[in-house]
Design a protein around this nucleic acid. Structure first.
Lengths: 179, 179
DNA sequence: CATCGGTAGTTGCATTGTCAACCAATGGGC
DNA sequence: GCCCATTGGTTGACAATGCAACTACCGATG
């Protein structure tokens, strides 16, 4: 009864329009799993070395590279892929830590802006070494230039397929670092 | 003063061992961003259609394809990339919903096992259509076979670099579906 | 220039996940 | 056979996030 049941488990095929063939899923699995493990690792290292989560790092980065080092809350939310409430709270934390300041938007009194402070910039600058170093060691060093091109193009296409159209080019997701 | 400050923002380079060149980050950004958006979308669709999160789906899947349709808690935790406490709670929810049953491990009284129920299998089977369909539409359809090969190989290499060694091959991360 | 539909951001609540402390059971050394 | 360091799992306290409801404000329209 034991292995019979087990047998059954792998036998009773899903049948109804397989839609996806098992053999096609290799890339998908690699994508999911690698992302999970890698991000976890990077977060760990960044947290240990600088007490920042990757989300916080990313927010600081987006502010740092923005004109005047400040951004409307909603824009920031879009860039770091967080909900409006999520960004409110994340910025709260950064403000509490002295890395960001809030101010009212001059052209629209409803809106507020987050501005990265000098302390924030320093912290970011320090953290960026750790983070980019991790990206390089784990990701860039393991992927050839040719492969990187393929990844960028193909995943970019996936991304575009999700967002109706071209936001893809913009956001720098924990990326660029000239602060 | 405006654009001057802005100018500064993009000028004061990180300098200290750039480590990573800006132009190299395209693949990295595509990777991060596409993952975030895509997973969000898939989770949304799965939740709407079947009231399951991707994590729950994955756990059910892992159980369904396991011998005897059951797994030790710790093994399950590894497969779905969750902490021990995380898996305890996830299984709690599935048990509450009648999709999983707990039993004591016969060979080690400390351990417990999670077994997927028939109801769980049905639910999973239904959900798998939605999920795999999403994977196909958003991911597989947008990535050519050649590109998939490259992705699997290169990201697999990244993954291996993270886990000391070769677990990579195993776990099926929201993937295979023969239930 | 008063009104009103739509937008920006914050807050309450629920969900989900982690870490650390804990209990129970194992199994190797004596 | 009896310890005790180790392991498997659960639980409590807490952090991070999303959604929905709310407030304040904008700006077009009459």
């Amino acid at each position: 009864m034991r292995s019979q049941t087990a047998q059954q488990a792998t036998t009773v095929t899903v049948a109804r329009r397989p839609s996806v063939d098992e053999s096609q899923l290799g890339a998908w699995r690699a994508f999911i799993q690698t992302h999970a493990r890698l991000l976890h690792r990077l977060d760990e290292e960044l947290q240990a070395a600088h007490g920042l989560s990757v989300a916080e790092y990313d927010a600081l980065l987006q502010l740092a590279v923005a004109p005047e080092r400040r951004l409307r809350m909603s824009v920031l939310a879009d860039r770091v892929l967080l909900s409006r409430s999520g960004i409110t709270r994340l910025v709260d934390r950064l403000v509490a830590d002295g890395m960001v300041e809030r101010s009212v938007c001059p052209t629209d009194a409803r809106g507020s802006m987050a501005t990265i402070t000098q302390a924030g910039v320093s912290r970011l600058r320090a953290a960026s070494r750790t983070h980019l170093d991790g990206v390089r060691r784990y990701f860039l060093d393991a992927v050839t230039a040719d492969e990187q091109v393929v990844i960028e193009r193909s995943l970019g296409r996936v991304n575009d397929g999700l967002t109706g159209s071209a936001i893809g080019a913009d956001s720098s997701c924990s990326g660029a670092l000239e602060v």
